[in-house]
Amino acid sequence: MDLLAWMGWTTPTAIFFISIAVTLVIMIIWGIKSPQTPRVGILRFETTPGDRLFISLLGSAFICLGWLAFFGAPIWEGLIACVFYAGAVFKWV
C-alpha cells in the first residue's frame, strides 16, 4: 500500500467515499430498473433523480458545516438532519 501512502487514507474517509460510490451505483441500478422522467417540484424547475442526489449531497455538506459552526463536533445529529433533508429533497424537489 506504499503507492497510496501519499493519499493519507483513513477508515472514516474511506467509508465516506465508499458510501457515495455505493449511492451512485444504487442510483444507476434504480434508473435502469424504473426509468423516471424529470419532474417539477417545489423549486419549480425540472429535476431528475440524479439532480436530487446532487442537491441532497451539496445541501448535506452545508448542513454539516453549519452544524459544526454552531454546535461543534460531533455532528451525528447533523447527519441525521441530512438524512431527513435528503428524504425531503427526493420527495418534494
Binding site: 501512502a5 493519507g8 474517509t13 465516506f16 467515499f17 459544526l68 460531533p74 455532528i75
Partner: peptide
C-alpha cells in the same frame, strides 16, 4: 480531491505520517 478530503481530517508533518484530528 479525495486526497484533500483525507488530509482535511488529519495533521501531517511530512514523510507521509498522519495523525487523526477529526473535524478539528
Amino acid at each position: 480531491l479525495m486526497t484533500v478530503v483525507n488530509y482535511s481530517v488529519q495533521d501531517t508533518f511530512g514523510n507521509n505520517e498522519f495523525f487523526w484530528v477529526g473535524l478539528e
